[in-house]
Design a protein around this nucleic acid. Structure first.
Length: 801
RNA sequence: GGGCCGGUAGUCUAGGGGUUAUGACGUCGCCCUUACAAGGCGAAGGUCGCCAGUUCAAAUCUGGCUCGGCCCACCA
């Protein structure tokens, strides 16, 4: 017997513990079942879970739980991504240390120790929302296992000639003081000054150049005009003098100069943006490097030395004004590239970096995308667009103190590159030495101080997780499913595909499932700065994890969903309704031993037909990761059909069993048992706690499974489908609805007895008694009159069509 | 500028050629009916963004426009 009230807080804690203690979600590597493997996104350990996480991880978990009930052995690990900036900040704050002031190995150790400490607290949030991972299959992207695989990936690709090091102009963040990759750029619109500068030329006339970057003037190496621009014909081939210096640069033609824009004259500085790099390569011009790594101008900038870019811009403009070299300035809105992590404008600097060469493999990556099953399918275009727009190879080195070290030494004498040996991995070349002398005989080496881009490691998550079970690696990798949100298709998804294709020539998974975002109630993106962030812990504390998950199941896969508290209330009501209906059913099945009878009443057949249809479509939807449709169908059936009609209809049979034949009682009891269990199972992936609680209270003693979550997903049973009964039942519910409306309009209680109702429909004969008893009618007549009569009055009613 | 997604009752959402357009929240009325008043029953509320076209038939398909979101490219 179910208690009167359902306490979600107690229940969720209880079953959460139960699942872990009973190892309900533990992966069995020796399984004979087919494995379904999920490349779980490892969240960044940075304190607290965000509602967006709760949203996305819930959606992933619906699928996991569904697949488990479908009979798969789930390989469902849980890792954390800890080699990025967020972790550094967290650990530095927590342990009051500075990563930059200590040896990398020592800092990694502190990080790992800290993680060990805070991990249970951190993971608690994920457990709380009911994620059904096997928590023992764990990795952190900074532990030895991951470092080793990441370094091995680097070395393998190096040996294949895919990884190379070069000194080249590349995108640099002066704030973080590291190089970055194309994917880390973020556009930001800025208002800035468009300055028209007058340069003296060798033909005696001045030429006007419009620029937003006057501070780069000392790095000007060339001036271009469009070949067809008549205004500047006479300047072609002439020299222009760079103000504040004695340098002269040539004026030449290039079609890249747009006559319509600015003055039509471009000055080429090394480097204002990546286009300048292209020009430099095109004309083989040696660069003038005026910027240092800290974003300040150096001595090559002459009198502007030591200034930051932004300061230099003002000072240069002032200096130009003093010399009367400014024709005019305009305000202009333009888009600049910034570092997505810190928002700083990026600069182009000549540095030595490691790259993975992959622009030549674009077609291969596009083909890889073709071979994946995309859910929803349109998300693939984001992947395709990204690949088509790729312009630079993947810069994988970062100038940070913390991360996976690049396993390389340089010979101090001959600069030869020495690779770490695989058996020694993971290595930190800044503290360890190679085993052998260099070819040149020298034993003096410099370990590469740089680390790998975090994505260079997290792009290996399928291999990282699978290699935790080396004996069955081939069964686990490639994986079945990559679930993730749409914002990191170009980062994580693409990079993972790249690595898998490069190393193994296969896709890392067959299916990708792309979630949307949780937005604020107005449909805006949540962010700390806007102060519109919703904390899942609070929400769950108030409404429960099942209610939160019910909300998360409310949007189509891939669609963003505004977070509205009322939707959580809806979820909570659903939980309450499930509880109450189950309480009613189970209290009336006391002493009943479920056994399928060979005969059902019409109305029972009606319900069984309906639930079987729901099972069929729900399974089809879930197979396509359309959990939201399963939720909608199940919810509608449960509330509108099962509770509003069926339970009301069968009350008389349940309460007054003596008035019925034995087979009619057997029929209703089995129908109740079967239908409720089916509804619970269909709801189990979405609301795991309430369904488990009810299952454990009642169904477990008849069903053989320890938990509803490892019981079988309902099967479509055609033998329980009866279309004729379905039609009769539908008519019955139509009639009941009409009589309810009549009672409601007449301000009568639903319990008000009616003397008679006349119905002009013949196909309700088999369900007449059900209608009578449900609506407390003494006699239902079949005829043309369409009348309803109570004790006090008689009305004509258009009940039936 | 290019790509993708979306615009459906006050709010959120489903549907995606064919009777009266789904559900929830909110609103209004009635009802303590032995599962549930955090409920039940009922009602009101919609030019399905705009304009064309295809079709016997368009919320649904096509084209254009418009607004919003995201991604990408950008102009010195």
């Amino acid at each position: 017997m179910l208690p009167k009230k359902y306490n979600f807080a107690e229940s969720e804690e209880k079953w959460g513990k139960f699942w872990i203690k009973e190892k309900i979600f533990s992966f069995n590597p020796k399984t004979k079942k087919e494995i379904f493997s999920i490349d779980t996104p490892p969240p960044t350990v940075s304190g607290k879970m965000h509602i967006g996480h709760a949203f996305m991880y819930s959606q992933m978990d619906f699928v996991a739980r569904f697949k488990r009930m479908m009979g798969y052995e789930l390989f469902y690990p849980f890792g954390t991504d800890d080699n990025g900036l967020a972790t550094i900040r967290l650990v530095e704050k927590d342990k009051k240390v500075r990563g930059t002031e200590m040896k990398r190995k020592d800092f990694v150790k502190i990080v790992l120790d800290t993680l060990k400490e805070i991990r249970p607290t951190y993971i608690r949030d994920w457990k709380r929302i009911g994620i059904s991972c096997d928590w023992d299959i764990y990795y952190t992207t900074i532990n030895d296992h991951c470092q080793k695989l990441s370094q091995k990936s680097f070395l393998d690709l190096y040996k294949e000639g895919r990884v190379h090091r070069k000194r080249t102009p590349f995108m640099w963040c002066p704030e973080c003081q590291t190089s970055i990759a194309q994917v880390e750029l973020k556009d930001e619109e800025r208002e800035s000054k468009f300055v028209y500068m007058k340069f003296d030329t060798s033909i005696g006339k001045q030429i006007t150049i419009a620029t937003t970057r006057p501070e780069l003037l000392p790095a000007c190496v060339m001036i271009y005009v469009h070949p067809d621009d008549k205004r500047y014909k006479k300047f072609i081939g002439a020299k222009a003098k760079i103000p504040f210096s004695n340098r002269q640069v040539e004026i030449m033609t290039d079609k890249g100069a747009d006559p319509e824009f600015g003055s039509g004259v471009v000055y080429h500085c090394t480097f204002g943006d990546m286009d300048d790099v292209e020009w430099m390569e095109k004309y083989d011009i040696p660069p003038i490097e005026i910027l240092d790594k800290d974003g300040r101008l150096n001595k090559k900038a002459g009198k502007f030395k030591g200034l930051k870019v932004s300061e230099a811009r003002k000072v240069v403009i002032e200096a130009l004004e003093e010399e009367n070299r400014i024709e005019k300035t305009e305000k202009i809105n333009h888009v600049v590239n910034t570092h997505e992590r810190c928002g700083t404008d990026i600069e182009i600097l000549m540095t030595e970096q490691w790259f993975i060469k992959y622009l030549d493999l674009k077609d291969k990556f596009l083909r890889a995308g073709e071979e994946m099953n995309w859910y929803p399918s349109y998300m693939k275009s984001r992947y395709d667009n990204w690949i088509k727009g790729l312009k630079w190879d993947w810069n994988i080195s970062r100038q940070r103190s913390f991360g996976v070290p690049i396993p390389i030494w340089f010979c101090e004498k001959c600069n030869e590159i020495i690779l770490a040996e695989e058996k020694d991995l993971p290595v930190d070349p800044t503290t360890e030495k190679p085993h052998h002398a260099c070819k040149c005989g020298s034993r003096k080496f410099i370990g590469d101080p740089d680390v790998l881009d975090t994505w260079a490691t997290s792009s290996l998550t399928p291999q990282i997780a699978a290699s935790l079970f080396p004996d069955i690696y081939d069964k686990l990798y490639p994986m079945n499913l990559r679930p993730q949100a749409h914002d990191i298709i170009t980062f994580w998804l693409f990079n993972t595909a790249v690595k898998s294709q490069m190393h193994n020539n296969v896709n890392p998974w067959s299916d990708v499932m792309i979630s949307g975002w949780a937005l604020d109630p107005k449909g805006k993106k949540m962010s700390k700065s806007k102060g519109n962030v919703v904390e899942p812990q609070k929400v769950i504390g108030f409404h429960g994890a099942d209610a939160m998950r019910f909300w998360a199941a409310g949007s189509k896969l891939g669609e963003d969903l505004p977070y509205q508290e009322k939707d959580l209330v809806t979820g909570k009501k659903m939980v309450t309704k499930l509880w109450n209906a189950s309480r009613f059913v189970t209290m009336n099945l006391e002493g009943y031993k479920p056994k399928r009878p060979n005969k059902f009443t019409e109305i029972d057949k009606w319900l069984l037909t309906k639930i079987n249809d729901i099972v069929k479509v729900s399974t089809e939807h879930f197979d396509r990761y359309e959990y939201s449709k399963t939720r909608a169908e199940t919810e509608k059936f449960f509330w509108k059909v099962f509770c509003d009609y069926y339970l009301e209809i069968i009350k008389d049979r349940i309460y007054n069993q003596k008035n019925y034949e034995k087979w009619e009682i057997e029929s209703v009891k089995y129908t109740l048992y079967y239908t409720l269990l089916s509804v619970l199972k269909l709801s189990a992936p979405i609301m795991p706690y309430i369904t488990e609680d009810i299952y454990q209270h009642y169904f477990k003693k008849f069903e053989k499974h320890k938990s509803i979550h490892i019981s079988e997903w309902p099967k479509y049973d055609t033998s329980l489908s009866d279309k004729k009964a379905e039609k009769a039942g539908d008519t019955a519910t139509d009639i009941i609805a009409s009589i309810r409306k009549f009672k409601s309009d007449s301000a009568l209680s639903m319990a008000e007895p009616l003397r008679y109702v006349t119905i002009d429909s013949a196909d309700v004969k088999l369900v007449l008694k059900d209608i009578e008893k449900t609506m407390k009618i003494k006699k239902v007549k079949i005829g043309k009159a369409k009348e309803i009569e109570t004790e006090n009055f008689k009305v004509k009613l258009d009940v039936m069509k």
